[in-house]
Simulated assay, not measured.
Amino acid sequence: MTLSLFVTGTDTGVGKTQASTALLRAYARQHARCVGMKPVAAGCDWVDGQWLNEDVAAMRAASTLKVPPVFDNPYALPDPVSPHLAARLAGEQIDLAHIEASFHALRQHADVVVVEGAGGFIVPLHEAPGEWATSADLALRLQIPLVMVVGVRLGCLNHALLTQEAILSRGLTLAGWIANVVDPDMPQQAANISTLQARLHAPMLAHWAWDPAATADQRADCLTLPI
């Protein structure tokens, strides 16, 4: 059976891609076919005749299984804004059923699939009259365990606890969380992390200090795999 995880975050810019690539590199030490999936990427450059997002490029570099772009990044949207707005600007409509089908196609060929969400857990993916879909709705469709990346900075306690509440209230599994320091000057870092360890109902898989130059393999070295 394919091992699958959904990586979400307490906000945008908290290190979901760092976590996803580290998970891929760590799992690659145990499994031959590991692939990352970024269902929706907003903010792309035109490269070699296609839209390419830097997070998608990083996940492809960390994967051991190469797949057609239509499967590991079904929606590549040019504008770096909320996915539902980026889709509107691109004249596209994000279809969760299409993403789910792409995910299951990957599972047919991979030992491990790491899915990276967009933005925070409840970021809108689709908005139309009478219709509304978020990243949380996508997680519900996929029904796989989640890893939450906590960007350690002022406000992270509230953001982490609210995200946990949103995950658990939907009956989803929080398999673990990662403390990723995104503000090196934040006071009382250790105290904040201790509070999270006491209040989050899942194991802390890693505590990454501020290090923008750290590679995926280096982060994988100090990462406990959730499953």
Rank of each mutant, 00 (worst) to 15 (best):
V182A: 09
H98K: 13
D79W: 03
T134W: 01
A213E: 14
S102Q: 15
S4R: 13
G91T: 01
L85H: 08
V81E: 09
S82P: 00
G117T: 06
L52V: 15
D55R: 02
A76I: 10
A22Q: 11
G117K: 13
P80Q: 02
G49K: 03
L162T: 02
Q108Y: 07
L52G: 01
I144A: 00
C34N: 12
L225H: 10
M1P: 10
S4L: 01
R141P: 05
L65M: 04
M204D: 07
A139W: 05
G171F: 06
K38T: 05
V147G: 08
A41L: 07
N192S: 12
A110V: 02
S194L: 08
R33D: 07
E127S: 11
G9V: 00
I144W: 00
I122E: 08
V182T: 09
P39A: 06
G49S: 05
R219G: 03
R170N: 12
T215K: 03
A133Y: 01
E92L: 13
V113M: 00
T21S: 12
M148T: 05
L146V: 04
D185A: 15
H207A: 11
V113E: 00
A90L: 12
G176I: 08
L223I: 08
D45N: 14
R141E: 07
T195W: 03
P129G: 02
A198Y: 08
T21C: 14
R29H: 09
A41G: 09
Y27M: 12
L200H: 03
L3Q: 09
L205T: 06
L157Y: 05
E116L: 06
S169Q: 14
G130P: 00
M59E: 13
I99G: 07
L52I: 12
A58P: 03
V123M: 09
V182Y: 05
A198P: 06
G15I: 08
Q108L: 10
H98T: 10
Q188M: 13
A87Y: 13
R199H: 14
H126I: 02
I94W: 06
D185Q: 14
P145E: 02
A57E: 15
R141N: 07
L140F: 02
G13W: 01
D185V: 12
E54N: 09
C34Y: 04
H207L: 07
G13V: 03
A58L: 11
V7H: 07
P69T: 12
A179N: 07
L174K: 11
V147F: 10
A198K: 10
E92A: 15
D79K: 04
S169V: 00
H31Y: 14
N192M: 14
L96F: 01
L125G: 01
A110F: 04
V147P: 11
S20F: 14
